[in-house]
Simulated scan of single mutants.
Amino acid sequence: MDAEVTLPDVDTSTLFSKVPFNRLLGMRREFCEAGQARMVLETRAELTNNFHATHGGVIMTLLDVVMSSAALSKSGFQRAVVTIDMSTSFLKPGRGRLTAYGTAVGGGRSVCFCEARIEDEAGDIVAKAMGTFKYVRP
Rank of each mutant, 00 (worst) to 15 (best):
M1W: 09
D2L: 09
D2Y: 08
A3Y: 12
E4L: 10
T6F: 14
L7Q: 11
L7M: 12
P8G: 12
P8R: 13
P8S: 11
D9Y: 13
D9L: 14
V10K: 13
D11R: 08
T14Y: 04
K18N: 06
V19G: 02
V19P: 00
V19Q: 13
V19L: 13
F21Q: 07
L25R: 01
L25H: 00
L25K: 00
L25P: 00
M27E: 05
E30K: 06
E30A: 03
C32V: 04
E33F: 02
E33A: 02
A34G: 03
G35H: 02
Q36H: 11
Q36G: 01
Q36E: 09
Q36A: 02
Q36L: 07
R38N: 01
R38V: 10
M39F: 11
L41W: 05
E42G: 07
A45H: 10
E46Y: 13
L47N: 08
T48F: 02
N50A: 14
N50L: 12
N50R: 14
A53I: 05
H55T: 02
I59C: 03
I59S: 00
M60W: 02
T61I: 05
L63E: 05
S69N: 13
S69G: 10
A71Y: 07
L72R: 09
S73A: 09
S73L: 05
V81I: 08
V81T: 11
V82K: 09
T83V: 03
I84W: 08
I84H: 09
I84N: 12
I84P: 03
M86E: 01
M86G: 04
S89N: 14
S89W: 03
S89I: 07
F90D: 02
L91H: 13
K92N: 02
P93M: 00
P93A: 00
G94R: 06
G96P: 06
G96Q: 06
G96K: 05
Y101C: 06
T103D: 12
T103L: 13
G107M: 07
G107W: 14
G108T: 05
R109N: 15
S110I: 09
C112H: 07
F113A: 14
F113W: 01
C114T: 15
A116F: 06
R117L: 14
E121D: 15
A122T: 14
A122N: 13
G123E: 07
D124R: 14
D124Y: 09
I125V: 15
I125N: 01
K128H: 05
A129W: 00
A129D: 04
G131F: 03
T132K: 14
K134T: 04
K134Q: 12
R137W: 10
P138K: 07
